[in-house]
């Protein structure tokens, strides 16, 4: 039986016109199927169009060519069924933690009691009970990131899009957040598309890891990560982990070198 992808990119290209009229191709002819319930990590050198791809999935920007399908239907505008967890949090500063998390349910027309109940569930899930009445500026970066996650989950999207959500966090907070996210993924069974440039993060989190090539972004390789779940940091000590890591690294390394070459060339010849 043919499995239908929940999210599908078909020959997606995206070019930008730069200030001086020069074109920049962020993505070129990228095709990718994302399966229901999976945790997919997109990994690649900086500037390979990862964020562009995620923004196309969310409907924030349109591809120049190709299309993106959600459950077989093309995405034409901003798509609430693809919930975005922003790297810079994007919390509403005038709303409390509860107000922020209630936003999605409120937009769906949930009553006061109902949305309060939904919000409480996700606030508990990200372990922020007791902070419901605080404003974002009163919270640390890690806590704000958890609010963003709870807000996205409370809106009950079909796919969670996460753009390097933990990049701004310190190493320890980051590790705790990764474990939380795994637990939440397990609980909610939501499809997650997660951008990172950190191989360890991808190996801890993902079911499948997609390595993107340097600009213009294409799918370079797709690796299945069958490290046993539930995963814990100690998994990093297993030989299987080391093998996967070095395999991904060879794919990524080529791209990083290519990217560096390209920028050196541009710097020397561009003038």
């Amino acid at each position: 039986m043919e499995r239908q992808a929940i999210l599908r990119a078909e020959g997606v290209s995206k070019g930008y016109l730069e200030a001086r009229g020069a074109g920049l191709v962020a993505l070129e002819d990228l095709s990718l199927d994302i399966w229901e319930g999976e945790f997919l990590c997109l990994i690649g050198a900086s500037g390979c169009g990862k964020t562009t791809l995620l923004n196309i999935f969310a409907g924030f920007i349109e591809p120049t060519r190709g299309r993106v399908l959600l459950r077989g239907k093309p995405i034409l505008g901003i798509e609430p069924r693809c919930g975005m967890v922003f790297q810079s949090y994007a919390l509403f500063p005038w709303k409390t933690v509860r107000g922020n998390v209630e936003f999605g349910p409120k937009m769906k027309g949930a009553g006061r009691a109902e949305r309060r109940q939904i919000a409480q569930r996700y606030i508990d899930m990200v372990k922020l009970r007791g902070f419901e009445g605080r404003y974002p500026y009163e919270l640390s970066g890690g806590m704000q990131q958890r609010v963003t996650l709870a807000r996205a989950l409370a809106a009950d999207p079909e796919v969670l899009l996460m753009d390097e959500p933990f990049a701004a966090l310190d190493a320890m907070t980051r590790q705790v957040m990764q474990e939380e996210l795994l637990r939440i993924h397990e609980e909610s069974q939501k499809t997650v598309v997660f951008i990172t440039h950190n191989i360890d993060e991808a190996l801890i989190l993902a079911d499948r890891i997609v390595v993107l090539s340097a600009r213009p972004g294409r799918v370079k390789s797709i690796l299945t990560n069958d490290l046993p779940r539930p995963r814990h940091v100690t998994i990093q000590l297993s030989p299987e982990y080391a093998r996967l890591k070095s395999e991904i690294w060879t794919h990524v390394e080529e791209e990083v070198h290519q990217h560096l070459e390209a920028s050196r060339y541009a710097a020397a010849g561009g003038g």
Binding site: P80, C82, G83, M84, F86, S88, F103, K106, M107, A155
Partner: peptide
């Protein structure tokens, strides 16, 4: 970015005005 976030969370034009643009 906040406007984008609100849209992504399903805000209509009216809700966007009331919940994001006016308080912002």
């Amino acid at each position: 970015l906040l406007i984008r976030a609100a849209r992504n969370l399903g805000a209509t034009d009216v809700a966007l005005m009331r919940e994001v643009i006016l308080p912002g």
